[in-house]
Design a protein around this nucleic acid. Structure first.
Lengths: 138, 138
DNA sequence: TCCTAAATAGGAATAACTACTATTAGATTA
DNA sequence: TAATCTAATAGTAGTTATTCCTATTTAGGA
């Protein structure tokens, strides 16, 4: 996926295509790390283009969340991480020692019988496992 | 369960039985609301006994978490909630409109095949569903 | 009762995020 | 292409939950 793919989604909603928005998308597409904090996004952009406001990062991240383009994650510390939705839906195992995370394909929602979520309109869900990864166990 | 039950666990670890610690346990045992924020715990105590420090609440909450007596929950806003472990292990469905939560008995960990969490020492996990509850849907 | 390490009170500090407002600039229209 | 209008931005101040710091107090053992 290229930036253009996401740009079209913004245009379809009548949103303006600002350089700031394009930069945020570029950072996610070019980063080897899938999970970025707002501050990391901001830092990567200001390296190249100083002067971008952190407020703009937060404002656009929540815009992109609403559009379903990125997902907000919470790995226990009290800072949000953000992930571009360009892979299959998945969950995470997070190492509490080194902080690395691996993806889990298993999604509990698919295994719950419909009775259990009856009378509830699911908007989102989270499932993460915390512990010690193989590397840190040795 | 009474306060004494938990007090014994503290004593078994050589920890001091301070009035502050007893009050924190009492608040959880007497509260109709299972999920309390640190501030709510603090407020309920200072109603009766002014002068307790918020720092003491936080310090003891994390002590009780380490002892496995309470569990820390995260319902999406950036404030932690705390729950006394005096019921069966469960997860939650949280209404994003009214904030109420219902318990889910289903635990994904039990349904994952062991291959999926191989080479990973699980310490804790979270599974919560967010959406609109029956009351708020009407 | 005395002693000592553990625990506490009170307030300052921090970190992540949100709100505010004057200014700028996409994009629509003529 | 230029004018216009409103969304979007920069910069900064404010907020909130939590943690840190240090002098003082106290629980529990000797």
């Amino acid at each position: 996926m290229k930036v253009d793919y996401y740009i079209k989604k913004l245009q379809a909603r009548g949103l303006k295509i600002t350089p700031q928005r394009q930069e945020i998308l570029r950072v996610f597409l070019e980063s080897s790390n899938h999970h970025l904090s707002a501050e990391e996004v901001h830092n990567k952009i200001t390296e190249k283009y100083p002067g971008m406001s952190l407020d703009t990062v937060y404002r656009n991240l929540s815009l992109l969340i609403n559009l379903g383009i990125i997902t907000e994650l919470n790995f226990g510390d009290r800072k949000s991480l953000f992930e571009l939705n360009n892979t299959e839906h998945h969950h995470h195992m997070i190492c509490t020692k080194c902080g690395n995370s691996q993806e889990i394909d298993f999604c509990p929602l698919k295994f719950m019988d419909s009775q259990q979520v009856k009378n509830f309109k699911v908007e989102k869900h989270c499932f993460e496992i915390f512990g010690i990864c193989a590397n840190c166990m040795e």
